[in-house]
Design a protein around this nucleic acid. Sequence first.
DNA 1: CATGAATGAGGTTTCATTCAT
DNA 2: GATGAATGAAACCTCATTCAT
Lengths: 210, 210, 210, 210
Amino acid sequence: MSKNSKDQSAKLKLVEAAKKEFFEKGYEKASLRSICNNADLTTGALYFFFKDKKDIFNYILSPLLDEINTLITAHYRSEQTSFSDVSVILPTDNSEDIKTAVEVLRTMYKHRQECLLFLNTPDVSSIFINNIIKYTESHYSSIFEILAGTNQFDHYIIHWISHMQIDAFIHLFLHEENEDKAIAKVPDMVNFMIGGTYKVLEKIKNDSNS
Amino acid sequence: MSKNSKDQSAKLKLVEAAKKEFFEKGYEKASLRSICNNADLTTGALYFFFKDKKDIFNYILSPLLDEINTLITAHYRSEQTSFSDVSVILPTDNSEDIKTAVEVLRTMYKHRQECLLFLNTPDVSSIFINNIIKYTESHYSSIFEILAGTNQFDHYIIHWISHMQIDAFIHLFLHEENEDKAIAKVPDMVNFMIGGTYKVLEKIKNDSNS
Amino acid sequence: MSKNSKDQSAKLKLVEAAKKEFFEKGYEKASLRSICNNADLTTGALYFFFKDKKDIFNYILSPLLDEINTLITAHYRSEQTSFSDVSVILPTDNSEDIKTAVEVLRTMYKHRQECLLFLNTPDVSSIFINNIIKYTESHYSSIFEILAGTNQFDHYIIHWISHMQIDAFIHLFLHEENEDKAIAKVPDMVNFMIGGTYKVLEKIKNDSNS
Amino acid sequence: MSKNSKDQSAKLKLVEAAKKEFFEKGYEKASLRSICNNADLTTGALYFFFKDKKDIFNYILSPLLDEINTLITAHYRSEQTSFSDVSVILPTDNSEDIKTAVEVLRTMYKHRQECLLFLNTPDVSSIFINNIIKYTESHYSSIFEILAGTNQFDHYIIHWISHMQIDAFIHLFLHEENEDKAIAKVPDMVNFMIGGTYKVLEKIKNDSNS
DNA sequence: CATGAATGAGGTTTCATTCAT
DNA sequence: GATGAATGAAACCTCATTCAT
């Protein structure tokens, strides 16, 4: 046991100081010296635990990103197997999508600090987010082709809808610090997206019939 | 006259080199030394033409931002005078908004390079964009209250719709290099937004009646 | 142990090089690059030990200034308690002042190099010296009012006498490198000051009687 | 004639801007660019009129320094011829000295701005002032030997008295902006100096008799 | 006379990183 | 595990000065 309850392991102290520094100043402007000073340690100590600046940054984000990755890949794996009767009234039966999205949202709130940092670092987050958008996009692509009965339409609209869907969750997360309040807003957002998607599908059908 | 057609004025050379550097590396990581080297000039020369790093950055962006500001302020000035019969079929009569948006889009393509740089520099662009979102938001707020017949609803949804509307144009601009192709996609996006907005309004009405 | 007696700690080498540079070129024109070159170190090393240019400058002067401040404040504290029978033959009983002044002089010689640097940097020294002059002035002010029996006289003369008294010690320090020789000259200077002060007091008395 | 009464010759404008800049920032920190900007001219113009930074600085000071030099040299030339009966009551018959000093003081006030600048630039003024002190010193030296009847005394005291005498005028000039008020204070200062000098001479006589 | 452009050297400061101890 | 020292490169910026026009 440590002599003092305020004692933390050096690594933990570094990580805490780094989170603060990275979030406040951004990755580039964050100073390792500053991190070490705030952790009451020297730079040498940091380099014992971490390879370099990127390493400590990744170390902070990896629990969050791993968890999200797990959720997403699980989701898309299960999706390929299901996908049966789409003859429903709603143009998109995205109840599974929503379930996953809510899970992701919960994970984001669980690691709120890290997630804010992540979203504040576009160089890192954009790649990750774009990947998720691409998954979403290919998913919608199949649905659209089935529901519209054609693939003769501008696929940009699908990319955009996918982007918006992901962005909607990010926007929610950034504007509402309370997790439950955020989740309560999800149905409205989904409602909006369904309304929009329905309209778009309608137009595609009209265009293909004329 | 210049000896050689490849000769450009030093200021122009600096600006071109700076655009490239700023876009590739971002404002913070852009190096004035590097800009000057690429422009075949010394750093002293840059400081003859520009006060400091910020100054050359602003110099690059100001034509774009000035033009957009002019468009937007003109738009919102005219809006305060009109706003009469809303008893139309479409849930939102945003034809004027769209006209302005398309004008803004045209301006963005006119200064495409600068606009990409601008959007790539969140520290600068986020403030500007958030302002436009706020304008849009207050505009939608009035419309929603009238069309829904109540203001007893979560205003976050309006903020989000406003955000999406602006974001839609930015997304379009970033993903489509051809101006006319981009503009051709606007109706689809508007269609989507109308469909979504309609759905949201419907729900608000139902909720307020029950 | 160091490999070589010529090895000094890097900080010491920096301080020595800085003393030289600051004294020769003055604070403003002194170059940190030049200091580091002369200390066989890089500028980064300097910034490990010192916050900035001011910091290394202050580091050099503070032992001197702290010692002098201690002497002066002790002197003025004790003075407020004494100050009893002024019915002495000498117009000014400044034996205590002289004692303090000699102590200050000894401190100056103890840190001769630093003191020369200090006096060579008017931006820094003038504030410090003016404070001491002000103390001296208020001291003389009381004495003059008592001895002259009036305060109807031009107080500028007191300010000037105070200035001269302080300046006398500085002049002595700057012109005589040997401490004991300098101190040997103090009585003559005091003698002169007493002669002058006596004359001035005489005149004030005459003026106030007429 | 100029088109406009506000038009000044370019040289004059430069000189006025330079006086301000040099006085406010000191010689080293003064910026030629800044001077030229304030004079609404370019650096090239400055270099048409003046060789370099030193040149414009000297140009500003030379009228003052020339006038003072003329006064001083005239004074010391006349002095070598006079100097006859010293069998007077006053230890030093310095009526001529005072007359010259007052003339110098008047010249200083005539060029007050330049003189403040001069005194604010120790690198320049100290040489000039030391020269005057040396003149004064050699003058006092002769007087002391005659009046004391010996030259067996510490000549430092003469150097110091000379320094103080010059310094007294500078101090007066710096602390009193009104010329007539300043001159009115001269007799008190002279009185003090005479009192002090008398005391010192007395001591020298006593020492040489014992 | 004067401009406007450009140089080149120098300034202070910050930083990630390394390494002997 | 951790320290403290040191590197070396690069950062932004300022300046007196020059010169073709």
